[in-house]
Design a protein around this nucleic acid. Structure first.
Lengths: 346, 346
DNA sequence: GTAAGACATGTTATCGATACCAAATTAACA
DNA sequence: TGTTAATTTGGTATCGATAACATGTCTTAC
């Protein structure tokens, strides 16, 4: 009690719980309880404490709190890029779902590399998150070890990894792209081209490409019309460049599918610039259902992915495990929907 | 020493520094030093410790560390929306700049409302960030109080607030839009229309609108052609709707300026859909220099803003103050550049 | 009227690291 | 070789909160 961190006059120090307790004439424990909802503190006491809190401008120090309660209230999430509205939507889904729970998001971006992801994971684990959400299933060996060792639930999203670490919330990029091929084949297109890299940096992109190749083979259509471009992030510009080389090498291509709406849009605009009519001269489709695909002219046929839902569900599953206190939780694989959206570009 | 949190066999607990110290045969203090670069520990000892760290899969607990060092290593930043590539670029600028310093970003989005911003600020302050970056100069009274009380440097970005809290990194949205008007007026356009809301939620948008109105008046051009749309976030779709009502009410409008490239793009596509030629029948310009503006057809004239640079400089200024240990730092107002980019749409 | 339970509050001992200072070891130099 | 300076290491207290347990007060029921 002699402790009394009470401010020596003149010295401005950020108030602690002791200051509040002193001012309200109660113990710090009571202050702690008053500030945590769901604890029983008498109405009168709580009011007294709140007055003191406001007078002092006290703000709870969660770093300290989480040390003793052994709960940090953090959830970590990693996306390849912030600057991609698909992943931004996922991040938003996560935040929205966490908000009500009082959990806070530690967001990082990996720049599409597993090396940066590994570093990020390590940095985040130092903050002792209660759960972690990753994009995709490609990680370094060390990252896997770190995650296992952390003893917290892990959710991989946006894909269906062959060897999941723990929880999964995603869909098959391969199947989704296959579905798009089949939808367009049904409309009569036969000579399909594909635009999108093979780089290991964008595993979802590679999976889509595989899905394309497989579907083409299954349907017995002409194969081999593949154009790839540089490293992620996928840009509109790359799409424009890629369609040029596609048309140079295979001028009779009837329909071009792109790894992303962004490249599809770039391709579309380049076609317009060259006076090609879409879809009469060439059909174009994308992936991801970005806003630009819906409102450009002509609208771009694409695959809609429930980006926001992926975030929500990933967070929800984490919360279940964290708050449910399942000691040894079961692995669960949650499939999120995706569907072809046909527009004027095909 | 009897403390020895050393694991009872069979029980798996996340290892602490004590475990590492025991295993390496040194004190925790030495382990602490070995893990912090720039501390003097003999090469042999450090190696011994690193072996122990790897064997145990130990990861430093920064929550605990920051409690005793009174440095959390956090910087908080708030943007209106994650799903906007301008702000995403700013966030990236911040992260990139922080990375080398070992500071970690706590990122939140306010959904363009000061109320949500206030809540977020409070939540973030509980984590005791060492500095905080905000978008814009509009905040609730309580938010201002909280920030003052926190005793940490604050940077407001993307605007030049009339009453800055502390540091500022931004530009005049009003002037920037005025510049755009003047550039187009010089090309001969006379009947200007403006698309963009007046809502208090998007203060930058309102400032741009004011800049438009003022410039039109200064030039003695026909006034009053203003169309606003719903609440932020600004979308492509809104732009398409807005141009429709613009053309209905003022069919002879020669050039339409939009609060953002997104609405400009929506407007442009709607014009194409209706068979209007841009810029012959109507000219369109935007703001922000999004990728879509550069690569759509026709390219959209716009104002380029150094989004990434805003983030970098805001973070850099914070680091200066935090690491420099300036007790009472001076206010500094850093102007970031912006410039008109003329393309085919005007 | 009293025992038993419900509720409100206080006490004490941590949580896992680092600051600060003291002790021990090694290197440096006359 | 002896003495001082430089470098490495260790011990202890503490950061600011909360868990767990103890205590005290007030109901309620018989």
């Amino acid at each position: 009690m002699a402790k009394a961190a009470a401010s020596r006059p003149g010295e401005s120090h950020t108030p602690t719980m002791v200051d509040v307790a002193l001012r309200a004439g109660v113990s710090t424990m009571t202050v702690s309880r008053a500030l945590k909802e769901g604890s029983r503190v008498s109405k009168a006491t709580r009011e007294k404490i709140m007055v003191a809190v406001n007078d002092l401008g006290y703000v709870l120090d969660q770093s300290a709190g989480s040390l003793s309660s052994r709960k940090t209230g953090f959830v970590a999430a990693m996306v390849p890029s912030l600057n991609n509205s698909n992943f931004a939507d996922t991040a938003r889904g996560i935040t929205d779902e966490l908000e009500s729970t009082g959990l806070q998001l530690l967001l990082g971006y990996t720049d599409y590399t597993v090396e940066k992801e590994e570093k990020l994971i390590e940095a985040m684990l130092r903050r002792r998150p209660e759960g972690i959400i990753l994009t995709g299933g490609a990680h370094t060996e060390r990252a896997r070890r770190l995650l296992k060792g952390a003893g917290i639930p892990v959710v991989e999203t946006w894909e269906l990894p062959a060897k999941p670490i723990d929880q999964v919330v995603g869909f098959s990029n391969e199947e989704a792209m296959g579905l798009l091929v089949k939808t367009l084949a049904r409309k009569g297109y036969r000579k399909f081209g594909y635009i999108g890299g093979t780089t290991s940096r964008d595993t979802r992109g590679s999976q889509r490409r595989e899905g394309f190749v497989r579907a083409i083979e299954e349907l017995g259509l002409p194969t081999g019309r593949l154009v790839s471009f540089g490293v992620p992030p996928i840009s509109i510009e790359q799409g424009g460049q890629a369609i040029v080389s596609m048309l140079e090498r295979w001028p009779d291509t009837e329909a071009v599918l792109c790894v992303s709406d962004l490249s599809a849009f770039g391709a579309l605009m380049e076609c317009k610039r060259r006076g090609l009519r879409v879809p009469q001269d060439i059909a174009i489709a994308g992936f991801g259902d970005y806003e630009v695909a819906a409102f450009c002219h002509p609208g771009i046929t694409t695959v809609n992915v429930d980006c926001f839902g992926i975030g929500r569900q990933a967070a929800r599953r984490l919360i279940q495990i964290i708050r449910g206190g399942e000691k040894k939780h079961e692995q669960e694989i949650i499939l999120t929907g995706c569907r072809v959206v046909e527009r004027e570009s095909t």
